[in-house]
Amino acid sequence: MAVFPQLRRQRSKREEPIGEIPGGQRHRAILLMPGMIWLVIFSILPLALVVVYSFASRGTYGGIEFKWTLENYARLADRLYLAILWRSFLFAFATTVLCLVLGYPMAYAIASSPEPRKNRLLLLIVVPFWTNFLIRTYAWIIILRGQGLINGLLMHLGLISEPLRMLYTPGAVLLGFVYNWLPFMILPLYASLEKIDRSYIEAAMDLGAQGRYVLTKVILPLSLPGIAAGCVLVFIPALAMFAIPDLLGGARTMLVGNLIKNQFLSARNWPFGSAASVFLIVAMLLALFIYRHVLQRAQGHG
């Protein structure tokens, strides 16, 4: 049947995505093993446990009783918890929008700088990561508190007579969020702006477009993959964050991350904490789904 068996074999070889792995199929399985084991033990199993726990009941002394129930999920619909979920969404959303609005001009400025300055600016974006996250957040306490830097300066200048209340407010939490995730927005934005060929911008100008029109009709659409990636990188972790509200927020800024942490650590209600976690995971999957959709549209599949 095969007239040129030689030829056919060669072609199918070339179509293989990665080159030939010596030893073939079995060898590949061995190469994948460590990663798979890692994933199963540290990711899949705990996740499965959380899902299972979320349908279990709380034991008398904080343990798990395997009496299956939907009670935990029903409890999430309580007005108190709904408010927390809604607030978490608002914080994550506001953080994403603020990071985008602040980050886009910065990323644009960096991407359009000449080579040596570009690298220096990128370095500045990454510098905060040289300090531990908790220390960076504590620094904000020092800046914002009653006898802190800002209040001290304002009172010294005589602009205010009493310290402003800034720490332990929703504003402080939002500030902490934006501060913490701004680099995660800027870097993917920069990467996608950097890739835009200058000739597209020149083509637009050649056709009569200037300033704002070039930005909205050419640059913005072409950087959509970066915008989507940045939003996901900010929104998803912001949805789950508990440390910043713990440090900078007051009682009125309890977010779903704090709720879950409390249920597992202090309230010792693991099933309810698990249910809240599952809810959070679903919300994140939804965000990822939207991200994929946007990306496909941007790449012209949709």
């Binding site: 060929d197 000739s199 597209y200 020149e202 083509a203 637009a204 050649d206 056709l207 050419v218 659409p221 072409l222 959509l224 941007a298 012209g300």
Partner: peptide, 12 residues
């Protein structure tokens, strides 16, 4: 108006 060396058609 210009026809560019690499065409520069807007990909989106």
């Amino acid at each position: 108006n210009t026809v560019f060396q690499n065409y520069a058609l807007f990909p989106h």
